[in-house]
Amino acid sequence: MARPTAKGPLITIAAVVVVGLVVLLVNMGTRDPSGLPAAAVTTGPTAADRTDAAPTTAPGTGEAATEDAGPTTVEPVTGGIYAGRTAGREMTIAIAVDGERAVGYACDGKRVEAWLDGTLSGDRLSMTAKDGTTVEGTVTTGQVDGTLTTGDRDLAFTAESAAPPSGLYEGRADVRGVSARIGWIVLPDGSQVGAGKVGDTPVDAPELVLDGTTSLDGVPVTVTPVTGEAR
């Protein structure tokens, strides 16, 4: 066996750097087919800035998106956002808490979805949806544990604190005169689960992209991060 030279470890470092750069470029380059620069979402303030500013500025961004017909960059919000799954992975749930107010969304990624509304009293979380789905839970540091009751099923869940860009997003669109509403949950591991309705008809959620190019059946969707604030 040829004895390695002392350059071996340096070559190893160089190989790691080269592979890393190639993967990074692939990451950035694959966004080009949409015609958008990879930096489309980096035009906002830095993550550090946004952590402070987002709770107040994000809803404004959402309203601006409603007024502008064109694509608008959506700022992910921060704050008391929790996301997770039920123990049996039947449903994915996201909860946004702001003070004593809480809103949430639960869906199975296909046809079952519920927008929830409720309150936080102490550490007790209680939310209900129009279809009778309820969520009861306990909020602790960085986590919500609780039970999601939908139909006749009681599903235990744990939701972890979700830092941007993970969290809860709501999409609105006008599909040929019929209003559509879509919910997406982006989990802390980066995966997204969503569902939606056009009128009363359930539809598959389109892929959520945060640079304003989310579309449903070719119709642009206005995406707003959901916080606990009044909607």
Partner: peptide
């Protein structure tokens, strides 16, 4: 990692067929 704006949609590309 702290300063760079997370893009998160790299999840569905970047050569990962099954993401996470």
């Amino acid at each position: 990692g702290r300063v760079h704006e997370p893009t998160f949609f790299a999840v569905n590309i970047a050569g990962f067929s099954s993401g996470v």
